[in-house]
């Protein structure tokens, strides 16, 4: 493992240095990550922000094309590419892990250039969670509170210092760029890092065994109806989910000028994929089933990955406290 140490006192310095050179996105409050202009705006509380990182790669509203009707006809303008070099600082390992899961989808039969561009331009510096929330279950999805997937650097708090694990070449370059702030790691720090990860993992008490779910999830199970009775068909679980990626396309503006935009959509909405023939999933048991089947069966069939990182947001923020872990246990039986 390639690693360095960052004294805790240098964290602010590092973030401010990054801000001078990059567009920096960091957790700003209990609600979301946001672009910050100073390290002081960063909020490193234990609880993860309600919104995941997905909006910085797959925005909630994205202009696909603008149109204007003039005397010489219609002018179409594509938005200029989002090519600012960005660093996401203090990402959650689960949020970072969501991105490699989404990559094959956005590079599938249609290569989504804006997503791909943003992925290419963005370095991700995660901070390991030493206090996982009671809804976290990343370990059940192959992740860890100190998981490295999707991150370029992983910082693990060791008290007076951060252990900095270099995961990718880009991560190594970032460390080189600010080499003066870092110190060499040593065996003791490596041992401490492993301890922090083990201690954090042990705090995740509620796990769910998803082995084989991609084969066994039963579309026709009568359980769907009972496990989804509470569901009120809002979009919280999908909008807050770092991996849910369904969208709708809308035209906004007047006949003379406007924009075609892509916006988030949710399979839990009644109007989702509604067409002339009606709503293919008219009741919420069918919509909720779609969400689960997509995450744990269809997506694995298509991309060999489960579309869930166990971040627990859908559990924490569900207005009626539906627990995905319990639902999965119930539908397995």
């Amino acid at each position: 493992m390639q690693a360095r140490l960052l004294p805790q006192g240098k964290l602010t310095e590092l973030v401010n240095a990054l801000i001078r050179d990059y567009e920096v996105i960091a957790p700003r409050d209990e609600r979301s990550f946001a672009r910050i202009d100073s390290a002081a705006e960063m909020d490193l509380r234990d609880e993860k922000p309600a919104m995941s990182l997905k909006e910085f790669f797959f925005p909630e509203r994205e202009v696909l094309v603008s149109y204007r009707l003039g005397t010489s006809g219609v002018t179409l303008t594509e938005p200029s590419p989002d090519d600012a070099a960005r660093v996401i600082f203090a990402a959650r390992p689960c949020d970072a892990a969501a991105l490699p899961i989404l990559d094959p989808l956005f590079n599938w039969d249609y290569v989504d250039s804006s997503y791909v561009e943003r992925r290419r331009n963005t370095a991700i510096v995660s901070v390991a969670c030493d206090e996982p929330c009671d809804t976290c279950f990343c370990v059940s999805l192959g992740g860890s509170p100190a998981g490295t997937e999707g991150s370029d650097l992983l910082l693990t708090p060791l008290g007076s210092t951060y252990h900095v694990q270099i995961i990718t070449e880009r991560g190594g370059e970032l460390v080189e760029q600010y080499a003066g702030l870092f110190e060499d790691s040593d065996e003791e720090s490596e041992r401490q890092r492993a301890q922090v990860e083990a201690a954090s993992r042990s705090k995740i008490v509620k796990e769910v065994d998803i082995a084989g779910l991609d084969k066994t999830l039963d579309f026709h199970s009568p359980v769907w109806e009972t496990v989804t009775q509470q569901c009120i068909d809002c979009g919280i679980c999908t909008f807050l989910c770092p991996t849910c990626h369904c969208f709708d396309i809308q035209d906004e503006g007047s006949p003379d000028a406007g924009e075609r935009v892509r916006i988030w959509d949710a399979c839990t909405f009644y109007g989702y994929t509604k067409a002339h023939a009606g709503q293919p999933r008219p009741t919420h048991d069918r919509r909720y089933r779609q969400r689960i089947m997509h995450k744990f069966r269809y997506y694995p069939e298509n991309f060999d990955r489960t579309l869930c990182v166990g971040c627990g947001r859908c559990i924490t923020h569900c207005p009626v406290s539906i627990d995905l872990r319990q639902v999965l246990e119930a539908v397995k039986e």
């Binding site: 609600r31 919104m51 909630e60 009120i232 068909d233 809002c234 979009g235 919280i236 909008f239 916006i263 988030w264 949710a266 909405f269 207005p319 009626v320």
Partner: peptide, 12 residues
């Protein structure tokens, strides 16, 4: 401005 249009307010 914060609204994400999840419609939880309406649904509940």
């Amino acid at each position: 401005t914060k609204c994400i249009r999840c419609y939880a307010c309406r649904q509940v």
